[in-house]
Design a protein around this nucleic acid. Structure first.
Lengths: 100, 100
DNA sequence: ATTATATTTCGATTATTCTGGAAATATGGA
DNA sequence: TCCATATTTCCAGAATAATCGAAATATAAT
């Protein structure tokens, strides 16, 4: 639920998608701010929300901080949404698409 | 983004998950209200949000209304989250899990 | 037609979240 | 040490969202 709330805000969703697209290398906070045009305090607020939601991780590198997606958690979220779909039985065909 | 905002609220997430678990048969508004203990006006507010987000659909049946998950849209949302992951290249292993 | 049931809309209040300036913290370089 | 840069925390105001009583709407039953 925190994860969904994390992504429910336009700025946070943009941050998250930027990080998803950049992959494991991550992105510096400052670069996120300039890319998305956010004030430092505002960015920090949202990064904090995403971090508490478990959706992103942070690594210190000197005086910079590098943020990246927590990929495992991202997939857990995706699975959560379809959990116990249709009570497990006689499931709608569309829901078979992803079964492992 | 509307879809994520739709699921970002505790009551709405519970509604959605109830509908996911019940599957294509759907659930009457009144039953949702009594199951989750929501006032009629509050439930209606949230159902409306979920409907505008495209996450659920509504079918009239006499004076009752039956809500069900919009399964196609649910899957589109799930795909959206991982779209263009890692810029398409040198993707983190965890993201291969679901590739069709 | 009248009454009962199911649900939505309206409206006002309350609660929560977002925003960004300014100050604080932390690191690096001269 | 002193100054510059990167980021966060603090705080207060602004914006948005949630809640629910009451009224409205729609259908069904008698």
């Amino acid at each position: 639920m925190d994860a969904l709330a994390g992504l429910a805000q336009a700025n946070r969703l943009e941050i998250f998608r930027l990080l998803v697209q950049r992959g494991p290398g991550g992105v510096r906070a400052g670069e996120i701010a300039s890319t998305l045009g956010l004030a430092p305090a505002t960015l920090s607020f949202h990064l904090s929300a995403l971090r508490h939601a478990g959706l992103i991780e942070c690594e210190a590198a000197g005086r910079e901080r590098i943020y990246r997606v927590a990929f495992e958690h991202m997939h857990a979220l995706v699975d959560y949404l379809t959990e116990n779909c249709c009570g497990g039985a006689d499931c709608h065909p569309a829901n078979q698409r992803r079964s492992a």
